[in-house]
Amino acid sequence: MSTAELHWQTAKLPNAKPIEGRFIRLEKLDPARHGDGMWAALEGPNSDPKLWDYLPYGPFTQRADFDKWLSGNASTSDPWFYTVIDRETGVVNGCLSLMSIVPDHGRIEIGHVTFGAAMQRTAKGTEAIYLLAKESFALGNRRLEWKCNDSNQRSKRAAERFGFKFEGTFRQHMVVKGINRDTSWYSITDSEWPALQHAFESWLAIENFHDGQQLKSLESFRSL
């Protein structure tokens, strides 16, 4: 990396404005408005039984404990939590956050990705990551991070599919739920984002879908 002086300004902090996509809308988490929908999406009868396996909290068997967790998330500025809302139905599908926010160095992370079963492996999940990545660089960040348990194959595959580059593994990085966690680190830099943004937008385009199924993979658009 060059040692030349950077002509760069401190990044801005996330704000409460909604972020609109084609399939979803991201709203600042509000337990009063989103609580019932979030409970149904994450702990309802059709929820994903493996959802909480690699998260430092959950599952929640009592609504009061869930509401306390949700309120705690809503009260913090780092992580900055968003609710994922299906634009067609208005139904809450899950949440995710921007976190590890360091504006002085232009560094930010997408984390706490907690998608209900109805959202997983759909265009909505990809669009949620795209929207937060786009927002992260629009705020002036130089680096967008993704970190996960090294044993979490689903999260590692997702990071690679989204175009994050693997940077290495922090061994014995954390203890989560009483179990050792080695952490895999990934990133996207601002110089890499324009090409990735184009790939995301090409993949999400109406003409890339037929009867709800993709015609070309996200990875294929990055190879063009």
Rank of each mutant, 00 (worst) to 15 (best):
S2T: 15
E5M: 06
L6K: 08
W8I: 13
T10C: 14
N15E: 12
K17V: 06
P18D: 07
I19C: 01
E20Y: 10
L26C: 06
K28T: 12
P31W: 00
H34M: 10
A40C: 03
P45Q: 06
N46H: 15
N46M: 13
D48C: 07
P49F: 05
K50S: 13
P59R: 01
F60C: 04
T61R: 14
T61D: 12
A64Q: 13
F66A: 00
D67I: 04
N73K: 12
P79R: 07
P79T: 07
T83V: 05
L96S: 03
S100L: 11
I101C: 11
V102H: 15
D104F: 10
R107P: 05
I110L: 09
H112Q: 09
T114K: 06
F115Y: 12
G116V: 01
G116N: 05
A117M: 14
R121I: 02
T126S: 13
A128D: 10
S136I: 04
F137D: 03
S155Q: 02
A158M: 03
F162R: 03
G163I: 05
K165D: 11
E167P: 01
G168W: 09
K177M: 01
T183C: 11
T183E: 10
S184T: 07
Y186S: 04
I188S: 00
T189M: 10
L196A: 03
Q197K: 15
A199N: 06
S202A: 15
S202L: 14
L204G: 11
H210N: 12
G212P: 06
Q214Y: 15
L215I: 13
F221S: 02
R222N: 04
